[in-house]
Structures are given as C-alpha cells and as structure tokens.
Write a protein that binds this DNA or RNA. Structure first.
Length: 229
DNA sequence: AGCCAGGCTACCG
DNA sequence: CGGTAGCATGGC
C-alpha cells in the first residue's frame, strides 16, 4: 500500500538525488585525500562503511556539536585544529589544557557552551565502552538535543534515525507537507513512516536537504526558483 | 554593515 | 507545557 504522502516524500528524495548525487556524509578528516587541485576531500561519496574506528566515530560526534548553529566550514577549521593537537581521540581531548582546547574550537563559535558540551559528550562516549547508545541516553547529555542525537545515531553509529534540521523544516513547510512550527518528533516521524527504514536513504536524504537548502533556502524569501516544483 | 550559519539550554508566561 | 532570548565567531 503506497500512500500519497509516501509518494511525495520519496519523489522529492529521488529528485534531490538526481540533482546533486551521493553526498558522502558525514564528512571525515580521517579519510582526507588531497586531490590534484590540492583541494582536500572530506566527503566520501558512495562509501557507506564509515566510520571504521573509535576515533572516526568520535570525530563525527565532535562535528555534530561543533556545527550546531554554525557553518560547517567553521566547524571543520576547529576539527583541523584539534587534529593538529592530536586530540581527535576522547582521552587526549580531555587531557588538553583548557585554554588551548577553547582556542582550538573558537572558530566554531559559542566556545563557552561548546567546550562544556564537548567534554560532556566525550565522557559519555568513553563510558559507552564500545556499545551503541540509545536516543534517550544521548538526550540526557548536556548539549545533545534532538538533531544532534539523531545525527550521532545515524552518522556515527549507523542507526536508522532520520535527522531533522531547520533546513528540513524550511523546505517541507514551503512545499506544504508540514507546518514550520511542527515539533521535532512530528517531522521526524513523517519521514520515518513514509520511507523504508534504509540507512543509505536516511543518510543521503538529510545530506541532500542541507545541500539543496544552502542553495535555495538560506536567505529570505525562501524557496525562490526552487527547481523541485 | 548586517544577516546568516547543518541548535541547545534555561527561563519565561 | 510551548515559545524564545542568549550564546561567539567567521563568511559573504
């Protein structure tokens, strides 16, 4: 049984994928490869086997906090600073001098908050001891809200949790499939009930929404010349 | 110059 | 409870 909504949600996914192709999320410095042009690649299209190591998983968790209400580029600079300090490792990060740590992540903004959040989530990650956290457990960590919890579960732990962000709300309220003020779980539920529970689709869909929204929904009025309709 | 960025917490009524 | 001010810094 295919509902109309399911057609809409899947149709938009197909259109976005045809427009932009596989996105290679979550970006990882660990698989950084320098191209001929000297451009560093942090995305890894069609490779769904990442993260592979404890530190790669940790890098994604760091990125989810650093990019909160912040352009990815600013978060990436912070990650590169941490990498230079060899601190993309939970124990080593906690060992950093507090001021050096803050200086390293300053580019990502909200340093006073994010420095606390990162230490909290780092202790939580160490405490997991290799196990996969529940959504509820993640939400109990200070600094981890709905979107961050789902990003961590989907991209760091390969769990089928759909990620909703402001861009998702902007695009789909503009299309008319949701109200902008619908709460997080309602929107998340819409996607999860109308898509097959497929890690690759969840992964690409959120990444494609971000890509598309950066282009057509980052400045008011939103959605002008959106080729989706 | 001013708006925007891949949110979250704490506090307000 | 649902709504929102405040939080920091960098890019354009």
């Amino acid at each position: 049984m295919t509902t109309k909504m399911e057609n809409e949600i899947r149709l938009i996914y197909n259109k976005l994928y045809n427009l932009y192709g596989p996105q290679g999320w979550w970006p990882l410095l660990s698989v950084d490869v320098s191209t001929e042009k000297g451009v560093e690649m942090v995305h890894h299209p069609l490779n769904y086997d990442l993260p592979q190591t404890r530190n790669e998983t940790y890098e994604i968790i760091l990125g989810t906090i650093l990019t909160q209400n912040t352009a990815w580029n600013s978060a990436e600079i912070a990650l590169r600073n941490l990498k230079a300090l060899k601190a993309i490792n939970p124990e080593k990060l906690l060992d950093l001098d507090s001021e050096i740590f803050k200086q390293a992540i300053r580019s990502a903004g909200f340093v006073n908050q994010k420095s606390v959040y990162i230490k909290e989530v780092t202790k939580f990650y160490i405490g997991l001891d290799g196990t996969i956290p529940t959504r509820k457990e993640l939400l109990e960590v200070k600094g981890v809200g709905n979107e961050t919890a789902d990003s961590i579960l989907l991209y760091a732990f390969k769990q089928s949790e759909f990620v909703v962000d402001t861009y998702t709300k902007r695009i789909f309220s503009h299309i008319g499939l949701i109200d902008y003020n619908d709460n997080y779980n309602k929107v998340k539920n819409l996607f999860e009930t109308n898509l097959s529970q497929d890690l690759i689709i969840y992964n690409e869909y959120h990444a494609l929404i971000v890509q598309h929204a950066k282009k057509y929904y980052s400045r008011k009025p939103y959605g002008v010349n959106d080729p989706l309709f």
